[in-house]
Design a protein around this nucleic acid. Structure first.
Lengths: 136, 136
DNA sequence: CCTTATTCCTACTTAGTAGGTGGGTTTATT
DNA sequence: AATAAACCCACCTACTAAGTAGGAATAAGG
């Protein structure tokens, strides 16, 4: 499995906020309720989204979270790469792993590299704007 | 990570056998040595390849494993699907998981389905014949 | 300035699984 | 009979995804 709940939830949260179409801040509790995700777990995910500046958080009464850009300015790829650590399809391509010793004459490496490209290119081609539903 | 060592090793084994260009049986020990994979672990992987009829095993002295088809008749996709249980990029698409309750109006599901298609189509388009090195 | 509603922070727990091992049984060849 | 191989089943271990707990910092309203 390439994308864990963390990444999937992150995506859903951004879509959720985009669909609210409000300038104000939405508290975590509301998002959690709508998306049926535990508040505590969601908290951890939102933290990384704030760190990555995809969201802005405001503390205190009336606080919450809001998007920092327009929906069509977020690509799915960047959201997942932020929350997933690594989107590489195989361990040999993971950035933190040291380079594989068989690399130079590995018969399968080019395959993995192409697959990696394919996946990332696709995920970067889709924006949150493409995913939100129409307002009625 | 989409593809674990099991799948990657399986692929390497088939390539290894294809490159031997022999009609005879190659013992596990040899493959393990060449590919630097522990014999015991490899055993488990080869077992599933035999079960899936991608390889044929012969017991006893002079025995070993050999391909059941020509290299260009194996697609990477089928090898990985056999050894990986599931190539789905996200849990919601895994066959053993029950259908997600949010499915019908899930904003992200079409994305995952397309990604899944993309990956499988690519992996099915590459054969072992494409990956083996030229004899010199 | 106190209360309330919120985010932010650190640490912990738990269940599942990838990756690997050990020891033995069966089968075929010489 | 000896040997070399695949086959089989049970076990182990370390890691990580997923989730939880409890509190500290901050902002707004009265």
């Amino acid at each position: 499995m390439l994308v864990s709940t963390k990444g999937r939830y992150a995506l859903r949260v951004i879509i959720d906020l985009a669909e609210q179409r409000t300038d104000g801040y939405t508290p975590l509790r509301e998002i959690a309720r709508r998306q049926e995700i535990s508040e505590k777990y969601l908290e951890a995910i939102l933290k990384s989204l704030v760190r990555g500046q995809l969201l802005e958080g405001l503390r205190g009464k009336g606080g919450g979270y809001r998007l920092t850009r327009k929906p069509e300015q977020y690509t799915v790829g960047e959201i997942l790469r932020l929350t997933e650590e690594d989107l590489a399809p195989v361990a040999c391509l993971e950035t933190q792993n040291q380079v594989c010793s068989r690399k130079t004459n590995c018969r399968t490496r080019p395959l993995w590299e192409k697959l990696n490209d394919l996946v990332n290119t696709y995920l970067d081609s889709v924006t949150i704007g493409d995913l939100v539903g129409q307002p009625e």
